[in-house]
Design a protein around this nucleic acid. Structure first.
Length: 519
RNA sequence: GGCGCUAUCGUCUAGGGGUUAGGACGGAAGAUUCUCAAUCUUCAAACCCGGGUUCGAUUCCCGGUAGCGCUACCA
């Protein structure tokens, strides 16, 4: 690796589903390193596994990556000097180099059948020996082998592993050495002509001039095979950085069993991309000093360092992600938060999706200005209370579904309702609201409401929570909730809007409550 | 089984031959608020085990143990 060659990184997911958090972290670290070093980022689609790869997953992957705020300089969607960037479009290249290795004697044809190989492995297993390929076909004369292949015998191409230990450097793990005794001659091209992962990565990384390979440490044990390939081809070996595994709370590899693991899951839960990225950066990396926790993508680009990446596996902690998400929700510009929240309100049914909205825009809800303004105030009111945006409709439910009977019956309200002063407060409050002219038309202002409260206070001589709790139960159905100043106007305006389900005004709430209370 | 990687509070981590082993999430307590949340303050909580090396190891070395990974004509 020449020291002054431009830094080139790659992110190489398989299109087998939505982007997983582990892969997202790998993508992030690659991206951070590249952007910091002013290097290039390549997106390459590894679809040599025909069984599991699907074209539509490629689009999902790209959407997920973009949602996270990542971008790339070369890739199947944007092109670039080393195109194509999809492995299924590069099969000729792999075959060409396979033949070259064969001609140079660095690789050989293997005629063993899968059954034979399986038996070999079983025997090795039974005798508790190393399960490596016996090398049976290593000695076949190359010319004879070619004749057999030409004659129709099916053959795979295997790389010859050299007779010396294989060493390489890893930025996070240091020097790593594998004895050649324990690494099998790997198949690089299957008998059906399809290349194998450990081979194509090397060909592609080398041809695409990748200088630093950052990937999950599940590839660490594969690296010696790859290093042997670079050497066989006479190509420079890149720098490696193997990132630790992300574990679930049971210390097992994070999987669907652990709940949300794909980027799409987090997006659908209303986790902000900046929160996810910040969290992922902290999984395995810490800044100098180790005390700062909040980082934007731009700040990470400045601070990030591969040398400071921890080699030990990390347990994914949802609570800490939520903490960051709460932080970013509070930071979030209200307009953006409102649009994000609208999705979830629409999903919960308190808001109609505009039937005239374009068919492919199910992630965007179109609403008229008055509705938008009102929802932005609802969002402002309740967003500080949620871990994730999908909890917004639930938190805001006192606005949308008011149930006087339930409020009277709720065990958590029982104590407040039983206070001796409560009856007087309730009575006076009801009278005041009902006789208020603004309240009659759903236009009670915060000021007028406060005036009513002070009058109730003066007339009943009840103050503090003995005063506020009963009133809050009437208005919200619960003795805890947001401040009245902001809540009252939201209720009043909501009652005048054309929503799928009518929002009750303060007066309507008082009427319903009195009716339920007094029979 | 073989090989490899890893090992600091419950979790993410800082640190590093001599420290009161630091921060954050979560937990507990208190302050504040009409309430909840938020906020602020305080508290509890860790160097896997055993051998070396050393005046001194949590830190360096070796071994053990445990977890994870690889051991495919998967990626």
């Amino acid at each position: 690796m020449t020291a002054n060659s431009p830094i080139r990184m790659r992110f190489a997911p398989s299109p087998t589903g939505h982007l997983h958090v582990g892969n997202a972290r790998t993508a992030l670290f690659n991206w951070l390193f590249a952007r910091q070093k002013r290097g290039a980022v390549v997106l390459r689609i590894e679809d040599t596994d025909v069984e599991r790869s699907e074209a539509r997953f490629e689009d999902q992957l790209i959407d997920d990556l973009k949602w996270l705020g990542l971008d790339w300089d070369e890739g199947p969607d944007v092109g670039g000097p080393y195109a194509p960037y999809r492995q299924s479009d590069r099969l000729d290249v792999y075959r060409e180099y396979g033949e070259r290795l064969l001609d140079e004697g660095k690789a050989y044809l293997c005629f063993c059948t899968e059954d034979e190989l399986q038996q070999e492995r079983d025997r090795a297993q039974a005798e508790s020996r190393q399960q490596i390929y016996s090398g049976k076909c290593r000695m076949i004369d190359p010319d004879e082998a070619k004749r057999r292949r030409a004659g129709g015998e099916s053959a795979a191409i295997r790389l010859r592993i050299p007779e010396h230990p294989i060493r390489f450097h890893d930025i996070v793990h240091g020097d790593v050495e594998f004895s050649n005794e324990v690494v099998s001659d790997p198949i690089i091209l299957r008998s059906n002509g399809m290349p194998v992962y450990n081979y194509v990565v090397v060909i592609d990384d080398a041809l695409m001039k990748i200088t630093h390979v950052i990937r999950g440490d599940d590839h660490l044990s594969n690296t010696p095979k790859q290093v042997a390939l670079y050497e066989a081809l006479g190509w420079p070996v890149p720098e490696f950085a193997h990132l630790s595994t992300i574990l679930g709370s049971d210390r097992e590899r994070l999987s669907k069993r652990h709940g949300a693991t794909s980027i799409a899951n987090f997006r659908d839960m209303g986790v902000l991309p900046e929160a996810l990225m910040n969290y992922l950066a902290l999984l395995g990396w810490a800044p100098t000093g180790g005390t700062r926790e909040i980082f934007s993508l731009e700040e990470l680009v400045k601070e990030f360092s591969l040398e400071r990446v921890t080699p030990s596996p990390a347990v994914f902690d949802m609570e800490k992600l939520y903490w960051l998400n709460r932080h970013y929700i509070k930071q979030c510009e209200l307009q953006r938060l409102t649009f994000l929240g609208l999705e979830f309100f629409a999903k919960s049914g308190v808001l109609d999706r505009n039937p005239t909205s374009p068919p492919n825009s199910d992630r965007t809800v179109f609403v008229e200005k008055s509705l938008l303004d009102w929802f932005s105030r609802v969002t402002e009111l309740f967003a500080p209370y949620v871990d994730r945006l999908d909890q917004l409709p639930e938190r805001a439910s006192p606005i949308f579904s008011y149930d006087a009977r339930a409020a009277l019956a709720a065990p958590e309200n029982a104590e407040v309702l039983a206070w001796p002063q409560t009856k007087a407060v309730l009575d006076r409050f009801a009278v005041k609201v009902l006789e208020n002219e603004s309240a009659q038309v759903g236009k009670l202002s915060a000021e007028e409401f406060n005036k009513i409260v002070s009058e109730v206070k003066a007339e009943t001589d009840v103050k503090g929570k003995e005063l506020f709790h009963p009133i809050r139960i009437v208005v919200m159905g619960s003795h805890s909730g947001p401040a009245f100043d902001k809540l009252i106007p939201v209720l009043e305006e909501g009652s005048r809007l054309n929503l799928p389900k009518h929002v009750l005004s303060v007066r309507e709430r008082v009427e319903a409550f009195s009716k339920a209370r007094l029979g």
